[in-house]
Nucleic acid binder design. Structure first.
Length: 528
RNA sequence: GGGGCGGUAGCUCAGCCGGUCAGAGCAUCGGACUCAUAAUCCGUGGGUCGUGGGUUCAAGUCCCACCCGCCCUACCA
């Protein structure tokens, strides 16, 4: 199912999800990384002219939230409300995330449907009552895997003896789905990407699946099991189902049909398995169609170390955006780290890329072109009447960059290479200007000389028109500034309405456009 | 313990089935230019390709051992 061309009316939307993030803490760089990636992907598809639905949200049930709320002297719901409204939603707005919806697992539109879903599975015999027993550490307040225990049945964290506890749970018959899942992976080799993630999941499933406990009765901050309200649904069924409940499952069939299933579930690799194994099995059990793909992104490493809870808080998204700006932030992580791999980043590397790629190559190009159109043509874009091989090379370069970026970003989720292709074109245009040296041509006042000067500057400005469009999904704010600087809107309409398919069609920006040298796109960094 | 991945110029990384594979970008240095955010363009230098063996006419590129880092090996979001 390669995504090609535009979506005909009636077909379901290009539907992308982020994980629903656990609201125990404020959002950190890892959350923002996944969310920005999804935003760029969905913005790209919108500019392909497709119907798009981009969903994010929060996971609000569970023991940790309950405890944190208690520790802060508020109810769990109050705690969630506060974090969502004060921390999560504001950050997404700040980062220019254009999500179409924001689902919270405490909303009735979710909890009601979750109850119906488990009730349905129960009636189908997919859920049964069983017991879980195992070594339990009182200090951790959780069960341990027998394999994790130290010599003498000691908790590996607290070094104290565990107790053997037994608890009544409801179980989902996950074990019955191993073969069907393997068959599904086989038939849909791109279901799990990247390939390394796929291999891990396949080998995991081949080891055999056990049934999954889906309820807890030891705490009550969750969705009650409808037929046995002493139990609340435990994490997976509750959390994963958000992808369905948010788009009208069980409540708005029309919307559901127009959206389901997801084209891409973006996940951190820590929760890959739940999305690649449990989630499809749940859907199989209930007879819903399966998502087209799950894409696992890697860890962000700081100074070679995995970002953990402790050092994640070391740098917050806002610290970076305050220094580098929102657009540079969106750009940096996707450009510097191949999506799907772990990647190390540093303040120094961010600074280096900002200066070299954004300020020097891109920002300065926009600046010099606008300055020359202003200086030599009073800001009115001249007509290109004397185009030759050099101009054709630019047009060809643009076509190549647009085609590559479209495949790499829109289909492969290879943001790094896709952005790289666009920036190759930026460099090509800089080289073109150096070769043509319009500031020298300007001294030739003959009609021929002026025709060349006009052609050169038109070519550069028209290139910037395309660059603004191609970079819009990645850096919406900066692209809008550039769009305004080129005087494009009165002739071409809104930047967001520009189509990827048309971006390389030469001559879009008409002569006569009013080019103004706007503000500097990427100011030089203070004490960089 | 088992499985998998990685260790290549100062930095981040490309190098598929062995034979111009010793590369790119950034940084450094030199030159050109002046439209531009002291920006741009061109060019130079720089590497025991983790360590030790082995196979081969020929090995970052295959085999073995070892060192270092990381991931997976189910109920933590």
């Amino acid at each position: 199912m390669a995504a090609t061309g535009t979506t005909a009316s009636g077909e379901s939307a290009y539907y992308v999800t982020t994980p629903i993030y656990y609201v125990n803490d404020a959002p950190h760089l890892g959350h923002a990384y996944t969310t920005v990636a999804g935003d760029v992907l969905t913005r790209w598809h919108r500019q392909r002219g497709e119907k798009v639905w981009y969903l994010t949200g929060t996971d609000e049930h569970g023991q940790k939230v309950m405890r944190t709320a208690e520790a802060n002297g508020v109810t769990p719901q109050e705690w969630c409300d506060k974090l969502v409204e004060d921390a999560w939603k504001p950050l997404w707005e700040h980062l220019q995330i254009a999500n179409d919806d924001f689902i919270r697992t405490t909303e009735p539109r979710h909890t009601d449907r979750v109850q119906e879903f488990v009730q349905d599975l129960y009636e189908k015999g997919e859920i049964y009552k069983g017991g879980y027993e195992g070594p339990y550490c009182v200090a951790c307040e959780e069960y341990k895997s027998p394999g994790d225990l130290l010599e003498g049945d000691l908790c590996p964290i607290h070094k104290r003896p565990v107790e053997w506890l037994k608890e009544e749970n409801y179980f989902f018959r996950l074990s019955a789905y191993g073969e069907r899942l393997l068959e599904f992976y086989e038939r849909n080799p791109d279901f799990i990407r990247p390939a390394s993630a796929r291999n891990e999941v396949v080998s995991f499933v081949k080891q055999g699946l056990q049934d999954l406990s889906i309820s807890r009765s030891t705490f009550d901050w969750g969705v009650p099991i409808p037929w046995d309200t002493k139990h609340v649904i435990y994490v997976w069924i509750d959390a994963l189902l958000n992808y369905a409940t948010a788009v009208g499952y069980g409540s708005d069939q029309e919307k559901f049909d127009a959206t389901w299933p997801a084209n891409i579930h973006l996940v951190g690799k820590d929760i890959l398995r739940f999305h690649a194994v449990i989630w499809p099995a749940m859907l199989m059990a209930n007879g819903l169609s399966l998502p087209r793909g799950v894409f696992a992104n890697g860890w962000l490493m700081v100074g070679g170390e995995k970002m953990s809870k402790s050092n994640l808080t070391g740098i917050s998204p806002r610290e970076l955006t305050e220094h580098f700006g929102v657009d540079a932030y969106r750009y940096y992580f996707l450009r510097a780290i191949p999506f799907g791999q772990d990647g190390s980043f540093s303040w120094e590397d961010f600074s280096a890329r900002y200066t070299s790629e954004l300020a020097n190559d891109f920002g300065n190009l926009a600046s010099r072109v606008a300055a020359m159109v202003g200086k030599y043509f009073e800001g009115t874009l001249p007509e290109a009447t004397d185009a030759g091989p050099a101009e054709q090379a630019i047009a060809d370069g643009l076509a190549a960059a647009a085609a590559q970026a479209d495949t790499l970003i829109g289909d492969n989720l290879d943001f790094s290479a896709g952005i790289g292709a666009i920036f190759e074109f930026v460099k090509q245009v800089n080289g073109y200007l150096s070769d043509q040296a319009p500031w020298k041509v300007a001294k030739d006042e003959s009609p021929e000389g002026q025709a060349r000067l006009a052609t050169i500057l038109y070519t550069a400005a028209e290139s910037l028109r395309a660059i603004a469009v191609l970079l819009h999904p990645v850096m919406p704010g900066t692209s809008a500034k550039l769009w305004a600087s080129l005087g494009a809107e009165p002739h071409l309409g809104a930047l967001a309405d520009q189509r990827i398919a048309d971006v390389a069609t030469w001559g879009g920006l008409p002569a006569g456009a009013q080019v103004v040298k706007g503000e500097i796109l990427f100011p030089r960094l203070e004490n960089a």
